[in-house]
């Protein structure tokens, strides 16, 4: 009887340590969640249309808003970001090629017309695909206020190179001077954005 009693007390001994650890953490952790909401307060309009609380994907039941789905969306967001980064490298490389070819073409080498057009297609495809991925990807976990010079500079430069890319295509055959100016603006701001970059 005494032996059994002793055994019980000894068995309970390590549980005391575990319960103390748990109690200490219960004392300091009042909120088990990373954030209070599943969606950030602010998101791009394009993201809100699809992924917002009343977004198309939520209303149609394709991606109901819950904790489990938000985890899957974060995984999707990471994959999209990886693809976007590959496209950014591809776009940057194609832009460099286009600057060289385009400059020679507009200096009088008409044999480069087809090459110029092909590279133009590649640049447009990679650039606008990357942009679309960024605009329509699931929203981030939280909306952090744009902080730091690099983040702000990147945002500012993005606005310029997006506008310049559209202009480059719009003024293509009409106005060679404007086309060149838009193209160089797109390239230089894109290059600057890559250098200051997201980090």
């Amino acid at each position: 009887m005494r032996f059994n009693f002793l055994l019980l007390l000894i068995a309970l001994f390590p549980l005391n340590g575990l319960s103390q650890e748990k109690e200490l953490f219960d004392l300091i952790i009042t909120d088990e969640n990373a954030t209070s909401q599943l969606l950030p307060e602010k998101m791009m309009i394009t993201q809100r249309i699809f992924w917002g609380e009343k977004g198309i994907l939520r209303k149609t039941g394709l991606a109901p808003l819950n904790f489990s789905n938000r985890q899957k969306e974060m995984k999707l967001r990471r994959s999209i970001l990886k693809t976007q980064q590959i496209l950014e490298y591809a776009t940057f490389g194609a832009m460099i090629a286009q600057v060289v070819v385009g400059d020679k073409y507009y200096s009088g080498d008409d044999s480069l017309y087809k090459t110029h057009k092909t590279i133009n297609t590649l640049v447009n495809a990679s650039y606008f695909t990357g942009t679309a991925l960024s605009l329509f990807s699931p929203p981030p976990i939280i909306s952090k206020k744009t902080k730091g010079f690099n983040s702000k500079a990147n945002k500012f430069l993005s606005t310029i190179h997006f506008t310049a890319m559209i202009l480059t295509n719009v003024v293509d055959s009409d106005n060679k001077k404007a086309h060149k100016a838009a193209a160089y603006t797109a390239f230089s701001t894109y290059a600057a954005a890559e250098i200051v970059f997201k980090f």
């Binding site: 967001r77 990471r78 976990i141 690099n150 980090f199």
Partner: peptide
Amino acid sequence: DSGNSNRDLQLLES
């Protein structure tokens, strides 16, 4: 907070 919101977000998500 590393002073760069974009970087912090990417890190948190990864």
